[in-house]
Lab assay of single mutants.
Amino acid sequence: GKMTGIVKWFNADKGFGFITPDDGSKDVFVHFSAIQNDGYKSSDEGQKVSFTIESGAKGPAAGNVTSL
C-alpha cells in the first residue's frame, strides 16, 4: 500500500536519494525514475512524499513517488 515519508536527501546529479518513512521503518532508496512529477524528476530534502515499496535488484526501493 501507499506510505508517506520525508525525502532525507536527493542527489539530482546521480539521480537517487533516500526517503525516511513516517512509520519509523528503515530509510528507503529512491531512484529518479520512480518520481511521478511531470518534467524534471528530482526531489528536495524535506519534501513530504507518498510512495509504494517495490522490490528492486538491490533490495527495497520506493515506487510511485508523489509530492504531497
Rank of each mutant, 00 (worst) to 15 (best):
K41V: 11
T20H: 06
K14F: 09
D38Q: 11
F18V: 06
E45T: 15
V49I: 05
K2R: 12
L68F: 08
F51Q: 01
D22Y: 05
S50T: 09
K48E: 06
G15R: 04
S55K: 13
D44L: 15
S50G: 04
Q36D: 10
M3K: 11
N11I: 02
K2H: 11
F32W: 15
S67N: 13
G1F: 10
K8C: 09
I53A: 01
K58C: 14
F10W: 14
K41G: 12
N37C: 15
P60V: 11
K14I: 09
E54R: 08
I6E: 05
Q47P: 05
H31E: 04
F10N: 02
D44F: 15
E45W: 15
K2F: 12
T4R: 01
V28I: 13
N11K: 05
D23L: 03
S25K: 05
V7M: 12
F18S: 01
V30C: 07
G5V: 05
K58I: 08
S67W: 15
D23M: 04
P21N: 03
N37H: 12
D27Y: 03
K14L: 14
G17L: 05
G39S: 11
F32T: 07
L68E: 07
F51V: 02
V65Q: 01
L68P: 04
S67T: 12
M3L: 11
A57I: 12
G63A: 15
D22F: 07
T4Q: 06
D27T: 04
F32S: 10
I35L: 13
T52M: 06
M3F: 11
G56C: 10
V7N: 03
Y40R: 08
D22N: 06
G56H: 12
A61F: 15
S42D: 08
G24H: 06
V65S: 02
F29K: 01
G59Y: 07
P60N: 08
S55I: 15
G46D: 06
E54T: 13
G17A: 04
I35C: 12
V7Q: 01
M3Q: 09
S67A: 14
S67Y: 15
T20Y: 05
G63C: 14
I19S: 00
F29S: 00
V65R: 00
K14A: 08
L68R: 03
D44P: 15
K48R: 15
D23H: 05
K26M: 11
T20E: 07
A61Q: 15
A57C: 14
Q47K: 10
T20S: 10
L68H: 08
S33W: 07
I53W: 07
D23S: 06
D38E: 12
G1K: 13
G63Q: 14
H31Y: 07
Y40E: 08
S43F: 15
N11W: 09
N37G: 14
T66E: 10
K14H: 08
W9K: 01
K41Q: 10
A62K: 00
G56W: 10
